[in-house]
Design a protein around this nucleic acid. Structure first.
Length: 263
DNA sequence: ATGGTCGTTAGACGA
């Protein structure tokens, strides 16, 4: 089975690219982040025609997460237990969606950006990650043999090598120690980064800012991850970052991350 | 040089 995650930065502006990506890479399950649309705006028919079931949650032009699957899509859950709220109604943002696909409990996650270290959004980010850690610990406590994948845009660069120049990021979000500690706590809770061993750095990224020619200059950040429970990690046979997908006109600013699992 | 580029949208805001 092949599972992928991708911050698509608007599904409506990139539906054709997503469809081509699914076919070109023979992807079974795709978790999307930043679909930037309401449920009624999601281009579902295109993926129906390709044989994928679709689950999506989106309340506005912000956030939005989805899971596409051609190996089953069951027990869809909007948000995780204890997910913190931000702003007005609805109480929680469209940043987490769970579904069981081909025996894997997949969570498509769009971790809050944080904006700046002094912004309330940064505290929201830390609270969101801590709540995710708690929920993830409960899932594994309930069933230590569960195959669980926490995939998506984490908006954290866990290591200095995960950004092109750590000096540029002094006093920035994504690399601060509290964010890294929050990420580490989830890893320590039993969710392993299954992609890094197959895509070692330095200089390996999943995101490049649209501005300042960051992509051609190879100035990016590794902030999209697939973390797997012990059972999921044991099934992993390979992983790759589809850097080609970042090229050309109409690319998302994030590249897809692909994980291969034994059947 | 305190910018740059996208996406949502119709003046900004978010990333």
């Amino acid at each position: 089975m092949r599972l992928a995650t991708w911050n698509v930065n608007s599904i409506r502006s990139r539906a054709d690219r997503v469809a081509a990506f699914l076919q070109r890479n023979d992807v079974d399950v795709l978790a999307l982040q930043e679909t930037k649309c309401r449920d009624d705006q999601f281009p579902q028919m295109m993926f129906d025609a390709l044989g994928y079931e679709v689950a999506h949650v989106g309340y506005s032009q912000w956030n939005g997460v989805a899971i596409l699957s051609r190996v089953g899509l069951d027990d869809v859950t909007v948000g995780f237990p204890g997910q913190p709220a931000w702003g007005e109604t609805p109480a929680t943002e469209a940043r987490a969606l769970g579904a069981t696909c081909g025996g894997v409990r997949v969570w498509s996650l769009y971790v809050p950006n944080g904006r700046t270290l002094a912004d309330p959004h940064y505290q929201y980010k830390l609270a969101w990650l801590e709540a995710l850690r708690t929920a993830g610990a409960v899932w594994l406590a309930e069933d230590p043999a569960a195959s669980v994948a926490l995939v998506g845009d984490w908006n954290i660069a866990p290591q200095d090598d995960d950004v092109w120049d750590i000096g540029v990021f002094a006093h920035s979000t994504h690399v601060s120690e509290p964010e890294r500690a929050a990420f580490r706590a989830i890893v320590d809770g039993g969710y392993t980064d299954v992609v890094r061993p197959y895509t070692p750095g330095p200089g390996v990224y999943t995101y490049w800012d649209y501005t300042q020619l960051r992509f051609p200059r190879r100035e990016g950040m590794r902030i999209d991850f697939a973390l797997g429970s012990p059972a999921f990690a044991a099934r992993t046979t390979g992983a790759l970052i589809d850097r080609e997908e970042r090229k050309g006109k109409g690319a998302s600013d994030h590249a897809p991350v692909i994980v291969d699992l034994a059947d």
